[in-house]
Design a binder for these strands. Sequence first.
DNA 1: CTGCGCGATTGACGCAGATCAACGCCATTT
DNA 2: AAATGGCGTTGATCTGCGTCAATCGCGCAG
Lengths: 246, 246
Amino acid sequence: MSLTDSLRAACVNVAGIRPCATCGARALSVCGSLAEDGLRRLAALADDVTVAPGAALVREGDTAHHLFNITAGSVRVYKLLPDGRRQIVGFLYAGDFLGLATGDRYAFTAEALEPVTVCKFRKTEYRRLLHDLPDLESALLERASHELAAAQEQMLLLGRKTAQERFASFLLDTARRCARAGGEADRLHLTMTRAEIADYLGLTTETVSRVTSRLKTTGVIRLLSLSDIAILRPAALQAMAHGSQD
Amino acid sequence: MSLTDSLRAACVNVAGIRPCATCGARALSVCGSLAEDGLRRLAALADDVTVAPGAALVREGDTAHHLFNITAGSVRVYKLLPDGRRQIVGFLYAGDFLGLATGDRYAFTAEALEPVTVCKFRKTEYRRLLHDLPDLESALLERASHELAAAQEQMLLLGRKTAQERFASFLLDTARRCARAGGEADRLHLTMTRAEIADYLGLTTETVSRVTSRLKTTGVIRLLSLSDIAILRPAALQAMAHGSQD
DNA sequence: CTGCGCGATTGACGCAGATCAACGCCATTT
DNA sequence: AAATGGCGTTGATCTGCGTCAATCGCGCAG
């Protein structure tokens, strides 16, 4: 792995490729806050890495040496209880930052759902750079604020919403993200399995499946395939997500 | 209220009182990162406010004009569903910062549990100050990271833990906080009601009460009063919190 | 094409925790 | 001291979702 890394780094440096210039995730990411000069300094620290589906970017309990910027693909971030119960605390996509909620050690595991590419940074170097680039630090703080607000919304979901309300909220969130990434509204693509959705929503796969069927038979959504969903009645879904009856 | 505020502000300025110098919360707070000069500039923006029990610091949906630093007392932060279901997303104590997870509008309500004192800042002014005081911004980012990690831990609790595991986790967290605030380990003081604990843990008051009784009869804890608890078997509580049997 | 295997769906049943209800405790008021 | 009211506890019952199990459907290897 470190061999692969150094090969890539070498490639980037030697060939003089400037990945940031062509990076589709830049506009969505904290890097978007940086001017030419800052971007160059950031790029000098970045290690461009590809991760295969199922492979881990970081593991819960490991010493937190690195930070990541997702540039393509999607990632599951989760915590485990000793007996194997899993809570997925978030899914990450292009533009998302991984490692904000990190102290000395990672408190979560992050694994690729699809082929993923990331910009990988050494934490020590990144920290030094933050000191020099206040814009980057502001952008990170901004990002952290949003994540915190999202986390609080998820606590409301996990603590107080019914299965149907949870799933409706999840579909709307996902649709919003897909739209922001350039998809059409009322259309969404899932990169994770039912089991992963369940572990994100604090449910079981069976319950996720039942709720999906119900939304299908009531004409609120339509399944184009297992992983592609059309929202037929957005208002109804919205109402459900916020706790109105059926 | 704005009269009270201006009187206090005047008092601080005219009488030359420097509340930071005597502030018990400074060591616990982001202000702790500031040198003499930065602290003076921060203090110049601070409005020292007292809030009565039950009164709101901020209300969900209001335009987010202010940020707060809790200097004494405790606060409940919660979100509501339209039908009244409540999720308390956190309790705040001396040294805690309120307003990190804030965009244009507050996404939560914050109310005093006890008499509370805060340093209140105008968001616009605070932001300008952040620009000049990178140490403060770093400290805030650090704080946001910790909060995010805590939020993820709470998602694990809400999504995957049993009632007993949730309550055990809550007791340990609270005991740790009490210890950090100068109390003895294995002893804790609750500033909230059973209903508030329930709304924090995604349970009902009845379930909180039943679990408390069980821990009492199994000799894991002892109730000195309704709001003061001694942990008799910390290891057992720890095991419970992480999901071991009984 | 056929068989295999994994993920998704559907059904039957059970249980942890919610709901409903009664009561206890204690502080405050009159 | 009696009445009031808010909070906490305890018991009986109910239910949403989990658990267990069977089946389906689709992609893939041979």
